[in-house]
Write a protein that binds this DNA or RNA. Structure first.
Length: 306
RNA sequence: GGCGACGUAGCCAAGUGGCAAGGCAGAGGUCUGCAAAACCUCCAUCCCCAGUUCGAUUCUGGGCGUCGCCU
């Protein structure tokens, strides 16, 4: 965080707590408590909580929490649509400005690694929308063909050439913006100072919390919620329904997974995701880590005061 | 008790007389930006014993086990 501070004294920048960590560790609860203490509002950085109605497996804050603290960037996108990181950064940036302008404390909390970093580091994202026709054409090609097609347009695109999703996206962007791809990827730090706070615990603790949460989500009516979304016309391929919990609930509705097996399958997906999140933020030296036991809140408040 | 089939990694599963596909799960990693996605790396000497053979997971015999059918 040193570089950005040189131009503006740190104290003049609004310090924004950014709560990160693996799924199921209680980030949401902590952000809530922090908001209550600080007179804050929460900007959720989560690629699934943005969608309307699908509440259970997206782990949206409870109605009680939402009654006491104002939340932003949740529950406002038609679940049939696909929301993306560029839209997120635009919306979240506006929300933070708005919160700060009203003299309140913005608190970012989230699990979607790219969203958190894109917002906090000010990634310039093109926001170029998916081109269905181009995609269906490109999806016919194997990775070697995709790769050579990309390299023909841009010899040094800076994307993983083994990864079809990335290569297709690169071609999609180049189709609109033209080469070179690298010039489109800049960073403009936000007008506020992120204070990254990581919540962590042992893998055993995380895993057992995920087991428990998955079981409760099924009890709370995850399958019904999924069925209702389908009945409302949300296609099974919609982004929300490919998320953890909904993907497994759909498998159950298709008869591929019994109700008894459902929580375990969900917990497994969650475990993988949690590990990926830990790896992502572990390598970010700007994150200050706090164990969830004992209550990390006092230490975090002290840290924010430094 | 008889007949038949099978016995390959945590699970599913291919395969061959010459040093054992793949998928899932697991572990580790990537990320200049569609990210709860995608990608990369790692991960077995084939139930046991004896025999045939230069060489057996693959062939033969005997165990043990599982499944099915029959009595």
């Amino acid at each position: 965080m040193a570089g950005a501070d040189a131009a503006l004294p740190a104290k003049l920048l609004t310090r924004v707590p950014v709560i990160v960590g693996p799924t199921g560790i209680g980030k949401s609860r902590l952000a809530f408590e922090l908001a209550v203490r600080l007179g804050g509002e929460i900007v959720v950085a989560d690629s699934r909580q943005v969608y309307e109605r699908l509440d259970i497996a997206t782990n949206k804050p409870s109605p009680e929490m939402r009654g006491r603290v104002r939340y932003h960037m949740i529950d406002f996108v038609d679940p049939s649509l696909n929301f993306n990181a560029a839209q997120y950064v635009r919306g979240a940036t506006a929300a933070i400005d708005d919160i700060a302008a009203r003299g309140r404390v913005p608190i970012v909390e989230g699990g979607t690694m790219l969203y958190v970093d894109a917002l906090s580091d000010g990634f310039t994202l093109t926001g170029i929308p998916p081109n269905a026709a181009l995609r269906s054409e490109l999806e016919q090609l194997d990775i070697a063909a995709l790769r050579s097609r990309l390299l023909a347009v841009d010899p040094d695109p800076g994307v993983d050439l083994d990864n079809p999703v990335r290569v297709i996206r690169a071609l999609e962007i180049l189709d609109v913006a033209g080469p070179p791809l690298r010039r489109l990827r800049t960073r403009t730090p936000p007008q506020w100072q992120p204070v990254r706070i990581g919540l962590t615990a042992s893998l055993e603790v995380i895993d057992s919390r995920l087991d428990e949460r998955s079981r409760r989500q099924v009890e709370r009516g995850l399958v019904d919620e999924t069925q209702q979304a389908l009945d409302a016309g949300v296609p099974p391929t919609a982004a929300v329904l490919t998320g953890i919990g909904y993907a497994e609930a759909l498998a159950h509705l298709r008869g591929e997974l019994s109700l008894e097996e459902l929580p375990a399958a969900m917990a497994r997906s969650n475990r993988r995701y949690a590990r990926r999140q830990l790896r992502w933020w572990r390598r970010d030296g700007r994150v200050r880590w706090f164990e969830i036991e004992p209550d990390p809140l006092p230490g975090i408040l002290r840290y924010l005061d430094e």
